[in-house]
Design a binder for these strands. Sequence first.
DNA 1: CACCGTCTTTCTCAAACTGAGTACTTCTAT
DNA 2: ATAGAAGTACTCAGTTTGAGAAAGACGGTG
Lengths: 247, 247
Amino acid sequence: MEEAQWLKSYEPRDYPAVGVTVDLVILTIRDKELHVLLIERGQPPFEGEWALPGGFVQENEDLHDAAARELQEETGLTQSDLDRVHLEQLQTFGKPGRDPRPLRVYSVAYLAFAPRLPEPVADTDAKNAAWIPLAATGEMKLAFDHEEILSAGVERARDKLEYSPLATKFVGPEFTISELRTVYEAVWGEQLHAANFHRKVLSVRHFVEETGRTTERGGERGGPRARLYRRGDATQLHPALLRPTAE
Amino acid sequence: MEEAQWLKSYEPRDYPAVGVTVDLVILTIRDKELHVLLIERGQPPFEGEWALPGGFVQENEDLHDAAARELQEETGLTQSDLDRVHLEQLQTFGKPGRDPRPLRVYSVAYLAFAPRLPEPVADTDAKNAAWIPLAATGEMKLAFDHEEILSAGVERARDKLEYSPLATKFVGPEFTISELRTVYEAVWGEQLHAANFHRKVLSVRHFVEETGRTTERGGERGGPRARLYRRGDATQLHPALLRPTAE
DNA sequence: CACCGTCTTTCTCAAACTGAGTACTTCTAT
DNA sequence: ATAGAAGTACTCAGTTTGAGAAAGACGGTG
């Protein structure tokens, strides 16, 4: 059969019903703690339960664009805010039955790292939306298989901090070394040696660059003004900033 | 609306036609070179062109199972062979138009690391199947967006060798340190310092364990018999086996 | 069967890096 | 004023690294 002819004879409705969604694990740091954006679902299935934000990929929409759109819808970010957010594909979940609806739904999960953002806005699909401390999600029952997706996201985030400069995506355009340390401590959930962290960050080439300026005032509870840095142009940390030995 | 009631009223055919495939980047080492398994398509679209092995996920089949099934179909592996192959999800590709058929096709790509295997068998969908040296794929035009998928797989493989013990999946159950070094050299495409590699591998705890035995004879061109090791139970390398500085 | 070159393995050594702690200074809060 | 906190610099011992040398063991060759 000729290829052109064969294309015409194709009958798409011969295929079983399938849907594809994107779901987002959006992480940020608030009060020195790792938080994730969750919504309270306003529609079935799982109406009233907490879930990761997400939705169906639209016809003719690229996956990454769909994730960016959902990110924007749920956080109310402006375009310029969006540029300061890191967004990457995480993993695809497709176990039969993971969605109770009578069509098979695959979820392409995305992971986002965001600086401190305003309170999220509940859009049409959600009764409510909020930044939830990661520690508090342990006791929550999330809709679908979103607990599994969230775990995968957090694990990926922990790894990424080691060898990528993405910790800078959790802070503003100018930041102090301590702020950066706070990010690592929040994501890894452990205290780091301040002096060694400082030495290490400055020794990794192109991780951060000096601005020549300092903070306006010292810390909340004392201490000198700290130097301000901005993100360098490294895409990988060489050498990596290794997490205290996980033996 | 009650959830149960709502479920009944759901009309799956309201959704656009969508298909999900798994495609596999199956890597192995032959003659000290990295190879990938490619097939020559026996059906449209792209009939006659080279592509990654793969196919549609079946109804009620989990993604990972679909990948394992395709792996088995294309390589003719027995179940016990399959246990010696590493298989992990790589990335999902879903750009509109990536498949010329009149339904939107997402591809969930999987990455496999295999020890030396027999020549693959062309199954029903393929005219031909072969291990192709990675270096030779640069000049080939692959079907769909399979060049992009292949690149992503190779890049992931290069990273994985650094911090995971998966290099052992490219060799037999018992192997010498040199064989292992050959794997790293093939995947990374560069020579390593044999003495330092040796020291490093033995210093990473639980990467390999001694069998107490040696090879029957020395190397092809001389040299003493080498000690044989087997895979240890580490899941991460601590510390990692870093690639010579990519600056 | 002697020799050469190859290969595995062990050593050496200097340079770089790490973890832990000290110290000095500049701040804020009281 | 003073105490305590925080940013930054330094010290020092222990570890890891990269580069190379060296000691054997072995295969292929003439």
